[in-house]
Amino acid sequence: MAASQQMGRRLPEIPQEKKKNVLNGGLMPTLGSDTLWELAAAEVESRETGGGEEEETVHERSVFLMGSKAGGKTSILLRCLDRDEPPKPTLAMEYTFGRRARGHSTPKDIAHIWELGGGTSLSDLVQIPITPVSIRSLSVILILDLSKPNALWGTMEKLLQATQAQLKKVSAQAQQAEKAKPGAKHQTLVHSAARILPKDYPDRELISPFPVPLLIIGSKYDTFQEFDSDKKKVISKTLRFIAHYYTASLIFTSIKSESLISKTKGFFSHLAFGLDRGKTVSCDATKPLIIPAGCDSFSQIGSPPIADVDITSLHARNPMDLWKKVYERVFPQESTSEQRELKDPAKDPQYSEPQIDAVRVQKDQELEQYKRNAAKSWKGLELDT
């Protein structure tokens, strides 16, 4: 009986001027409660409803990296993560992660990073990083090799189309799953750029925002800057149009330039850890392009750069198709048939392991012998029947 009375007893009154310092070191707002229990209950309710000023949970984001084959994706990623190690060719889909501390006493932010290898040949693997869980905080980075303009449009088009299709599919699945939960509140799982664009966003009614934050990186700028000025103009204006059309950020970079890598890292850290991406803007075609999303417009980009050709004769269905036809007039796109032929990694000299390779050869021979014996047995079985 005494115990129950003790449990039901009110705690001593807390002076009004000290109430705000009881919890969270002064972060708790002054409440009209009279007991510590009521103050604690109010704090828990505040955290559950998102009213707390300081989050203690670990922030996790996902970044999907894709682009041109041998376009420098891994090299750029390692530099952005401050990892001093030699880059290796990416096999299919590879995963890594990055961490960043927000403070001495707070958990680290985590970025889950998926890198797609093989250029466009393995675009079906986009289903691995794009899931109902990852799309809640997913960003996409498309790296295009500026030194190979004849493969640029095809790479961009196929990879973005495959990514958009998977995002649409997963978003629909996730929304159906949420609606199926009893009493679940409706929530938007894909952070669609179309839903967050301000009313004064340039060309808002003419663009097609990418479903998740998108960063386009033009790699190997050191080689690109040696191109003829007219060709550089076509590539630069075309990528500006694509980036603005998809509400993406655009930056040209080179691993040989510390300044450009530093600015590229700023864009990467913005997607991976939510940091400020910087305020630098450069739309000059004679210099590396650095254009955050929302800092460009169709009026600034201008019309497709092509001479001695009547644009109306190209019979384009829409602006994107028009820019594609103009670009391919200047840079005929290479066939992608060769890109689909992947080299067997087991036969690649750089992954040579003598002992393992010897066993592999033996097993391959045993497999061939087994196939021959099985074929003979099936033939004999057919004759008996």
Score class of each variant (00 low, 15 high):
residue 168 K to D: 10
residue 125 L to K: 09
residue 97 F to T: 10
residue 112 H to S: 11
residue 165 A to L: 11
residue 99 R to F: 11
residue 145 D to K: 15
residue 158 K to V: 13
residue 169 K to I: 04
residue 115 E to G: 09
residue 101 A to I: 08
residue 151 A to F: 12
residue 203 D to S: 01
residue 101 A to Y: 14
residue 149 P to H: 15
residue 187 Q to E: 13
residue 192 S to P: 00
residue 135 I to P: 05
residue 173 Q to W: 07
residue 130 I to Y: 03
residue 191 H to R: 12
residue 139 S to E: 07
residue 199 K to F: 00
residue 206 L to C: 02
residue 120 T to F: 10
residue 129 P to F: 05
residue 111 A to D: 02
residue 137 S to R: 13
residue 104 H to A: 10
residue 166 Q to S: 07
residue 124 D to N: 02
residue 183 G to T: 10
residue 120 T to V: 15
residue 125 L to N: 07
residue 118 G to Y: 03
residue 134 S to E: 04
residue 136 R to K: 08
residue 99 R to P: 04
residue 170 V to A: 09
residue 147 S to P: 12
residue 167 L to V: 06
residue 153 W to N: 07
residue 159 L to K: 14
residue 189 L to D: 01
residue 124 D to V: 02
residue 97 F to K: 14
residue 151 A to K: 13
residue 124 D to I: 01
residue 111 A to N: 03
residue 164 Q to R: 15
residue 194 A to S: 03
residue 171 S to W: 02
residue 102 R to T: 02
residue 151 A to E: 11
residue 123 S to D: 08
residue 155 T to L: 11
residue 154 G to C: 12
residue 154 G to N: 14
residue 168 K to A: 13
residue 205 E to A: 09
residue 191 H to P: 05
residue 112 H to N: 14
residue 146 L to G: 01
residue 158 K to E: 09
residue 135 I to R: 04
residue 127 Q to N: 12
residue 195 R to C: 00
residue 145 D to M: 09
residue 107 P to N: 00
residue 101 A to R: 11
residue 168 K to R: 14
residue 201 Y to P: 07
residue 158 K to Y: 13
residue 109 D to A: 07
residue 194 A to C: 00
residue 126 V to W: 07
residue 158 K to G: 08
residue 203 D to L: 03
residue 200 D to A: 12
residue 171 S to D: 12
residue 162 A to R: 12
residue 118 G to S: 03
residue 132 P to I: 05
residue 159 L to I: 08
residue 184 A to V: 09
residue 159 L to E: 13
residue 181 K to G: 04
residue 159 L to Y: 09
residue 105 S to N: 02
residue 149 P to V: 15
residue 138 L to E: 08
residue 199 K to Q: 04
residue 185 K to A: 14
residue 172 A to P: 09
residue 201 Y to C: 04
residue 145 D to G: 14
residue 130 I to D: 02
residue 97 F to D: 11
residue 175 Q to W: 00
residue 197 L to T: 01
residue 143 I to S: 14
residue 171 S to A: 14
residue 178 E to N: 12
residue 206 L to M: 05
residue 112 H to P: 02
residue 96 T to A: 05
residue 139 S to C: 11
residue 183 G to K: 11
residue 156 M to P: 07
residue 138 L to G: 07
residue 170 V to F: 04
residue 128 I to V: 02
residue 137 S to M: 05
residue 198 P to A: 02
residue 98 G to A: 13
residue 189 L to K: 02
